[in-house]
Amino acid sequence: MYGNDFGVPARDGRDTPGPTGGTGTTPAPPDEPPGFQELIDTDARIEPRDAMPEAYRNTLVRQIAQHAHSEIIGMQPEGNWISRAPSLRRKAILMAKVQDEAGHGLYLYAAAETLGVDRADLLDALHAGRQKYSSIFNYPTLTWADVGAIGWLVDGAAIANQVPLCRCSYGPYARAMIRVCKEESFHQRQGFEALHTLSHGTEAQKAMAQDAVNRWWWPSLMMFGPSDADSTHSEQSMRWGIKRFSNDELRQRFVDMTVPQADALGLTLPDPDLCWNDERGHYDFGEIDFAELFEVIRGNGPCNKQRLDHRVRAHEEGAWVREAAVAYARKKQERAGSTTGAVA
C-alpha cells in the first residue's frame, strides 16, 4: 500500500508486529540520541549517517521496503494488459507507466539501502513472504477498463498516501517520494482519461468502465489501512514524522476528492451510503469490509500466489544473467591488473 504501513491485527500472531512491538502511549525509546526528536519537531530531516533509534530505522526499513515491493509487484496487474492495449497510444502510455513503477521501486529500494540494508535481502524477504506488498495488487485485472480504474482509483489513493510522505522526517525517503509523486500524477491522469473515454464511448465500453469501478472502489479505500481505532503503528510513526495523517483522515480526503471526479466520468461509485454530509463538510461513506482486507493480507486474495510466484520466477530465471555480469566484471578487473582504478 504504497507507503502506509499496517498488518493483520496481531492477535493471531501471523503477521508483522508494530515497529515498537507495542501500542498505547509511546515514550521515547531508550536508544534515542539526544536532540533527535527536536530535529523532527522542527521539521528538519534525519539523514542516513545520523544516529537514530533502532526502532526508527526498523520502521523505515519495513515501510520503505513494503512500499518498494508494492511498486514492483504492481507492475504485474497492469503489465498484464500491455500486449492487449486497444490502441498504440494506450500501449505506449501503459508501457511507460509500468516502467515508471519499476523505476519507483528502484528509487525506494535505494532509499531503503541508505539505512544499511541490501536490496537483495529485501527482495529475499519479499520472495519468502516475510515482507508484504500492498494487498491491492492481489486483485486481478480482468478487463481493459481495470487499467483505467487502477490509474484513477489505486494511483489516486496512492497519491493521497504519498504526498504527505514527501515531508517524511527521513531525508532519502522524502526525496524519493518527491520524485515518485511528480511522476505519479501522470499515472492518475492517464487512468482518468482512459476511463473517461470508455464512459463516453459505446454502451459496451461504458459497462466495462462501470464494472471496473465496481470492483476497484472498495479495495482502493482499503489501501489506507484499518480505521484509526485499530491501527497499531500510527502513534509512534506520527511522533517520528514518518506518518503525517491518520488512515481515516487520508481515506476521507481521498473520498472527498474522488466523488466529484466520478460524477465527471458519469460513473457510479458502488456505495449506497455515499452522500454529502453538510455538517461534517465531508462525504459519508459505507462501512468497509476489513475482514476481506485481512484475508487478502493473509494470502487468501485472488492473486496472492500468482503475483509472488511470478516475481520469484523472474528473479530465479535471471540468476544466471546476474552471475554472468559479475563474472565478466571480475574478469575485466583481473585483466586490467591491479594498476588501474578498479570498480567496486
Binding site: E47, P48, E113, L115, V117, D118, A120, P172, R322, A344
Partner: peptide, 15 residues
C-alpha cells in the same frame, strides 16, 4: 547516502 551495497560473499551487483 550511507548504506549497503557490499558484495561481500554474495553475488549481488554492487551499489
Amino acid at each position: 547516502t550511507g548504506g549497503g551495497g557490499s558484495t561481500g560473499g554474495r553475488r549481488d551487483w554492487p551499489l
